[in-house]
């Protein structure tokens, strides 16, 4: 079979156009919500940027998170789960005070994933660190390993779970970056609440997407990781720390 001149030209043009368009198409796709039939992609890395100079003396993010995820307060602070908490800092020498929200930092190399015997603690392709509660045996080794105290063990029977957020006694849980919201194209509940009722300190986005605001700011302004000395490459970054 020989290719005619005309066909050759036609194929060639199409191929060139395709090659030129491909990156554009993928960019457009990244900017949109993923379809339900699509898997989480390793091209993305979801993350947060928190400017603690703007972090107000409120706990809108905490309330919003625990409402969204059905994390109830049983009046037992030692054993109640906390997916996100406000941490108050005071410099030991200068007494300068700061406040910031702390949650799972969604590490690139998460210690909780390394230590989990069954592989229930895992990192999704798009960088979100999760607990597969179907295989979690409740050994709490991940709680021992987490440098941020981000994980909670469910100490008692849970009722009234949210349909998108299964939770149950005897397993470990932590911030999911509101994976059910992220998967339908929304920002996590804490970010939404902070920008609506709080200090507008939190920004959510794809750290790999050059067109995203979070990417632009991380590349233009200084930022820090909590316990950067552990070299875990966290997905949550702070400014003004």
């Amino acid at each position: 079979m020989s290719l005619g001149r005309r066909e050759f030209l036609a194929w060639g043009t199409a191929a060139t156009a395709g090659a030129a368009l491909a990156p554009v198409i993928s960019l457009v796709e990244l900017a949109q919500a993923r379809s339900p039939e699509e898997a989480a992609s390793s091209l993305r890395r979801w993350g947060l940027l928190i400017d603690i100079t703007k972090c107000a003396d409120c706990d809108e993010c905490v309330t919003a998170c625990h409402t969204e995820n059905g994390v109830a307060n049983n009046g037992r602070p030692r054993t109640d789960a906390q997916w996100i908490r406000k941490v108050n800092l005071r410099d030991k020498r200068t007494a300068v005070a700061q406040t910031l929200p702390l949650m799972c930092q969604h590490c690139e190399d998460p210690p909780c994933v390394d230590v989990c015997p069954t592989g229930a603690s895992f990192k999704r392709d798009d960088g979100i660190v999760l607990v597969d509660k179907h295989t979690c045996i409740g050994c709490r080794y991940c709680v021992m390993a987490c440098p941020y105290g981000a994980r909670s063990f469910v100490h008692e029977t849970v009722t009234g779970q949210r349909p998108d957020v299964p939770r149950g006694k005897g397993t470990v849980e932590s911030c999911t970056l509101c994976v059910h919201r992220v998967d339908r194209g929304d920002a996590p509940a804490c970010v939404e609440a902070c920008n609506r009722d709080g200090g507008k300190a939190m920004l959510f986005g794809d750290l790999n997407d050059a067109s995203a605001e979070i990417h632009r700011r991380l590349h233009a302004e200084p930022s820090a990781q909590v316990r950067a000395d552990l070299a875990l490459d966290t997905g949550v970054r702070y400014q003004g720390l």
Partner: peptide, 21 residues
């Protein structure tokens, strides 16, 4: 479906437990 959703992030409605309920 549970493994597809939890591990890989597929959210097809067809076999979702939420859909059953």
């Amino acid at each position: 479906q549970r493994d597809r959703t939890v591990r890989q992030g597929f959210r097809e409605p067809r076999f979702s437990l939420k859909g059953c309920v």
